[in-house]
Design a binder for these strands. Structure first.
Lengths: 165, 165
DNA sequence: GTCTGATATCTTGATATCAAGATGTTTGGA
DNA sequence: TCCAAACATCTTGATATCAAGATATCAGAC
């Protein structure tokens, strides 16, 4: 018996005609994503970072040397709008974690680059974050974890999350 | 090949020492929760509702006749803070979807009740929403869907989402 | 009966986000 | 060459959210 079982039971009582089987899946998906996020946030906070700050630093770190992306690339990598990217980059710039400069060849473009300080901040948080993720899933059996991963991959497919190649 | 596969590949290139297997699960969980939410939002928008408005109306509808909850009960049902509840209820009250009144026996308590208008708005959106959820999952095979549900239930267990009884 | 602590709700101030549009730059065709 | 359309980024205004604290009410100990 969990939160969704209770909710499904309430619908069963109120609207026995409804098919709530999809809600059983989607309701859990969004609820557990929230609960997991709260656990991740707690570790980021211990390292003085917001979750969104870590996300931007991670995207730059993953890009590889010279740890540089454009705002547009950040928009697409992080699924956020351009205004949000502007705001995020400004905040990280004010903390000394990234630098911004115009591209010389195409002056519409900006290059956002991780600083040494930013890379260090990411590095410290990243280790704790990876541990945290591992710990969250540690209570799953091998089979349960494979089940969850397989189910999520299938969901990604139906949501259209596939890349060329 | 999907978005997470690409991200995992980037980490493999940059930090081959890291164990990214937990990220493969948790990254997909949060990404797909976001993608699903965007699809749900689109249908709510067709019915002139924000996702959070639908959530409040649903909680009240599920409560059963007389479709009434206190702000504190809404906090807990929706995993939001009390300030957010105040704001949500004000907005729904201004749209005529709920009424607020003091409890006579315990004057600290407020009773938020779904109006006939609010119930109708919920009803219309709910039918489309349920269809939408069913449609999103329609691309999954029977087995994939069972896999996803089983994996999510196990995750809920390790996240502590269990109720008494 | 009267405090004191607990409880329920609301207020305040800060901030992350988005949609829509403004600004500046490049590109391709006439 | 010049202009229009495409493009990249930033700005503006609105709003949903939270944390922390304020306010009002109740319950229990004495």
């Amino acid at each position: 018996m969990d939160t969704l079982d209770r909710i499904l039971g309430e619908w069963e009582r109120e609207r026995p005609d409804l098919d709530v089987s999809a809600l059983a899946v989607i309701g859990r998906l969004s609820r557990y994503a929230d609960l997991v996020q709260a656990r991740l946030d707690a570790v980021f906070a211990e390292h003085g970072l917001q979750s969104w700050e870590f996300d931007v630093l991670s995207a730059l770190r993953r890009a590889g040397d010279p740890y540089e992306l454009t705002p547009g690339e950040l928009d697409r990598a992080l699924l956020i709008t351009s205004g949000t990217t502007t705001h995020r980059v400004q905040r990280l710039e004010s903390r000394g974690f990234v630098t911004r400069r115009r591209d010389e060849d195409d002056r519409r473009v900006v290059r956002v680059r991780l600083t040494v300080t930013g890379r260090a901040a990411h590095e410290a948080a990243h280790a704790a974050h990876a541990d945290n993720e591992t710990r969250i899933l540690a209570g799953l059996s091998e089979g349960e974890r494979a089940e969850l991963l397989g189910g999520l991959k299938a969901l990604g497919r139906v949501l259209g999350d596939t890349l060329p190649d």
